[in-house]
Simulated scan of single mutants.
Amino acid sequence: MLKRDNRKRVFLYSGKMAMHMRRTLVVLHRTTCSSLKNTEASLDVRHPLPLFLPVRTKKRYFIPPAVGVKGRKEENKEARARAAGIVFRQQYLERPINIACTAGIFDPYVPPEGDARLSALSKEGLKQRTEQIRQSASSQLAIRKIKEYDSDFSTKTFAERAQEIFIEAHNALTQFNREKLHFLVTERCYPEMTRGNRYKTIRWRFVESLEPPKVVHTRCPDMVTKGNLYGQVTVRMHSKQTLAIYDRFGRLMLGSEEQPKDVLEYVVIERHLVNPYGRWRLHGKIVPSWAPAKDPIIKTLMIPGPDLKPGEEFDALNYQVPTPAAVQWYK
């Protein structure tokens, strides 16, 4: 019994000593912390900010396809994206619109076959005369509209002006003057004139006018809105011209520079009437169905010759070009 009492007294004494020591340490810790804060405030000591490293925790919505899923049924990607919270932007089929000129020729002029006036006593001649009267009535209405915006417009003087625009535009094409060509040609006619001519040399010359140019057709269409008016005038031109086209190696492909040809053309000149700074420009040509076919392009081929040694000339060899053997074709 005495031993047990002694043990209890030892435990109680040690517990009390531990409590006193703990209280003493807590008081010392508080006093040291307060003294350190006071010294830092007096000395203005600043600790560096902690460095935070960004860790990627965002979920990856796109998962690359696994191997061997080529033959499986394809899922709807748009539905998967919507389920993942991604919104696709709506795709619009947009087409560029140019309001400086129209996209084509409105009510194109139909030239009479052979450009000859038939007898009014025949059935074809009577039909042709009726069509001309109908077209002339519509042309007179269009001329009145054009004169409201262009007071200097006159069918007598406009034909000569249209011929000058035609000549200047083709001269700019032969010289590859793009700025001047854009000034004389509409945005619809420009790609038609310059398509395929990048590596070619064009030689064109206006020799003379066989017949005075004549205004044969006039229209005043509108586009997009009702008041957005355009003037289209068709001019008949019968002239003599020369045309020669060479490829990039200087070989003649079409025409001749010395032999002029008689050309009958129906040229369409257009202007944006609402625009006060608009000007008359070449818009296109009307090719009738009865017009003769164009001359075929002369194609040149390279025939392989003998291998020449250094210092050896081809003319000295008297090389004969081999002719292909005759082949019998059976039906």
Rank of each mutant, 00 (worst) to 15 (best):
M1K: 10
L2N: 13
R7W: 04
V10Y: 08
F11P: 01
L12K: 11
Y13P: 01
M19I: 10
M19S: 09
H20M: 06
H20P: 00
M21V: 02
L25C: 01
L28N: 06
C33R: 13
S35A: 15
V45C: 07
H47N: 13
P54L: 06
T57F: 05
K58M: 08
P65K: 09
P65Q: 06
K73N: 05
E75D: 06
A83M: 05
F88K: 10
F88M: 14
Q90R: 15
Q91S: 12
Q91L: 11
L93C: 07
I99V: 12
F106P: 01
P112G: 01
D115Q: 04
A120P: 07
L121Q: 11
L126W: 07
R129H: 08
E131H: 04
A137E: 05
A137Q: 06
S138G: 05
S139M: 05
Q140G: 02
L141G: 11
I143T: 10
K156M: 12
A162N: 07
Q163G: 08
E164Y: 11
E168A: 15
E168K: 12
H170T: 04
A172D: 11
L181P: 11
H182I: 03
T186V: 02
E187G: 13
R188D: 04
G196D: 13
R198Q: 14
I202H: 07
W204K: 03
S209C: 12
V215Y: 08
V215G: 02
P221D: 08
V224D: 08
T225A: 07
G227E: 11
G227V: 04
Y230I: 02
I245C: 10
L252C: 14
L252A: 03
L254D: 01
S256P: 02
L264M: 04
I269P: 01
H272N: 15
G278L: 01
G278K: 03
G278W: 00
W280A: 02
R281W: 00
S289L: 06
P296S: 07
T300W: 14
L301Y: 15
I303Q: 07
P310R: 11
G311T: 09
E313M: 12
Q320R: 13
P324Q: 09
A325W: 06
V327I: 14
Y330L: 13
